[in-house]
Design a protein around this nucleic acid. Sequence first.
DNA 1: CGTCGAATTGATGTCATTCAACTACAGTGG
DNA 2: CCACTGTAGTTGAATGACATCAATTCGACG
Lengths: 195, 195
Amino acid sequence: MPATFKNYMIHKGGLTLQEFDQLTDSLQVKKVNKDHIFLREGEICEHSFFVESGLLRSFTIDESGKEHIIQFAPENWFVSDRSSIFFNEPSDFFIEAIEDSTVVFIHKDFMIKATELSSRFMEYNEKLLQNNIRHIQKRVNLLLSASAESRYLNFIQLYPDLLLRVPQWMIASYLGITPESLSRVRKDLASKNFK
Amino acid sequence: MPATFKNYMIHKGGLTLQEFDQLTDSLQVKKVNKDHIFLREGEICEHSFFVESGLLRSFTIDESGKEHIIQFAPENWFVSDRSSIFFNEPSDFFIEAIEDSTVVFIHKDFMIKATELSSRFMEYNEKLLQNNIRHIQKRVNLLLSASAESRYLNFIQLYPDLLLRVPQWMIASYLGITPESLSRVRKDLASKNFK
DNA sequence: CGTCGAATTGATGTCATTCAACTACAGTGG
DNA sequence: CCACTGTAGTTGAATGACATCAATTCGACG
């Protein structure tokens, strides 16, 4: 019944129709409202989430109460706390809907079973992992080397679609700056581009 | 002949002695001097490196010519550019010895063959990957949320042994600050602790 | 002993934060 | 329909954290 997810698993994940149908026990599709919380800090993450429609974010809250956004997950993205799932540890972060969304809850068993069932899925899964590493690694690099402005420019070229959908203060949080600073960065850029 | 590595693969990596011996074609042990470069930006990474003794680092160089240290690899650590190996892409970074070192060159075939040979090794390998993600993720978090001082404190409790071996300007580079700033941070900490 | 890179220190500059005020707007309840 | 409220975004002024530049010291090593 999760049509998008099913297609995704079959076309990109390397599962056959029959394999997929053996795994549906570990899946649930849910419609949730904006602000729904899927995972809280301290909980052990039991599911990955696949976004069929809508938009999720994952974020931490530091000792001083500030939020730091780890990742946005729009349509056809996965989000979860891999470490929490894999090592069975309490999660460091939160996962929340920032739009009304339709989300597939993928129980951790799904991945295990799918991996046993299909070597092509296993490869796909490793590819996801590797991609994830590449992605986070780039982010570390940016944070180490780039100014707020160039991080923002990088953001808009990586996620042009999100610009319109994500409130500005969340983008600031993703970039590691304050909303005020982002506002000023944008002002600067605007003045540069129109003269 | 790489005794430490062999032990490591058998005790932690889940390989049997016989399995390991089938794979030695993909291994070479080399002694290299300080400043030896294992990988340059733009090259495709063909090996993982296992440090038997000594100390390596991986780092990027940004457009303005500044180095940013990604990782230190002391004894019994692995270092490589996973993304470059996995996706067959030019590497973003450099790998270099910062002490005279003995290093096992692990050709990318090793991992592939070992994974086919042993499901226990496969699990071990995934664990390495997951650990890697956890580790980088924590770093992103620190960079987003913590001051230079607390990043330094975090560093010394994570890698107390490296403190003595790594020149200070490299630690600064790892933390994403200038050597001058790190010097001042240390001065501050010293004055706090002795009064 | 002289040289070179690492580390420290001081003076100054820059970028981003903080705090506060203000605008704009969407949602709520009277 | 309008006032009330709360949140997002912008702007300004002051502050703070870290960078930059330059000078000096320190220690390792040839």
